[in-house]
Design a protein around this nucleic acid. Structure first.
Length: 279
DNA sequence: ATGCCTTATTTCATAAGA
């Protein structure tokens, strides 16, 4: 008779191109053995997602892709049902006023591939890639806030019947000043503004808890370091990859950590995975 | 500091990232 508690290992990782990262991804899956994986910035059309390669490691895969930019996916070896590509009410980026794309294709804008949801092992799991926002005065920033507002509404509807839910991914917001290496550097920038942080607070107000991982180095559980200027070596990072879980899921957390090892070596993503073990 | 890297694509140049 088994006496061990059954564990589910959930992870989220912005891979910055699943094609460029495929060798590292496969190696990491084999070593880390997560049961559910949320991927962001796959940067391929869904049809080109390497489902066969991850399938050889025992994962079912669902992908939502645009091609060159964005793109999210879910991997699971504990079931993958009721897949949602995007969420109801998800806004499309309309561009800056006068952008040529609006003239070329009026009314043809569709939401970018930034959200995929599925039921995995009894948990409603979302892999999310929030818009960057670029600058606080840009249309992209307004889009970012409207995207979060729509996400909040969509998750609120699911939470009515889904006590076990985890919204994971690259939220492109640092929740507090402790989540950036130097708050002074970010004055006037996106990722730290009060409206963006309020968008996260609004999600938490739904009953979602921020599952803060253990940093494997230093006091801050950073998950992203710019490729440039030796930022990783200096540990000049940001915590923008988050796991927002209902109480029913957060109460099962036995461990959570940032896998800094995946940011090292040759050809890493600029983000590290967040790994969460649930009982 | 409109960038120090990395990615994909309409590639020997650009857009985007955060």
């Amino acid at each position: 008779m088994r006496w061990e508690a059954i564990r589910v290992r959930l992870a989220t990782w912005n891979v910055n191109s699943v094609k460029a990262r495929l060798p590292r991804l496969l190696e990491w899956l084999a070593e880390t053995e997560p049961d559910i994986v949320c991927l962001q910035e796959i940067k391929v059309a869904a049809a080109l997602f390497p489902a066969d390669e991850v399938g050889e490691l025992g994962y079912r895969a669902a992908a939502h892709g645009d091609g060159r930019w964005n793109g999210v996916a879910l991997l699971s070896r504990v079931g993958l049902e009721d897949v949602s590509l995007g969420f109801p009410g998800e806004p499309a980026y309309e561009g800056e006023p006068g952008e040529l794309a609006l003239i070329d294709e009026p009314g043809l804008r569709r939401p970018e591939a930034r959200a995929i949801g599925a039921n995995c092992g009894g948990i409603r799991v979302w892999s999310l890639y929030a818009p960057n926002g670029r600058t606080p005065d840009s249309a992209h920033y307004a889009y970012k806030l409207s995207w979060f507002a729509a996400l909040r509404t969509a998750l609120a509807a699911e939470l009515d019947r889904q006590p076990q839910l985890a919204a994971c991914g690259d939220f492109n917001v640092a929740p507090t000043d402790d989540d950036v290496w130097d708050p002074a550097v970010f004055i006037g920038s996106t990722h730290v503004t009060p409206p963006e942080r309020q968008a996260l607070a609004d999600l938490r107000a739904l009953g979602l808890r921020d599952v803060v991982p253990t940093p494997m180095k230093g006091p801050h559980p950073f998950t992203y370091w710019d490729y440039r200027a030796g930022m990783f070596a200096k540990n000049n990072g940001m915590r923008i990859d988050l796991v927002y879980a209902t109480e029913a899921v957060a109460g099962r957390v036995r461990a959570a950590y940032v896998d800094r090892e995946a940011r090292k070596g040759k050809g890493p993503s600029d983000h590290a995975p967040v790994v969460v073990d649930l009982s």
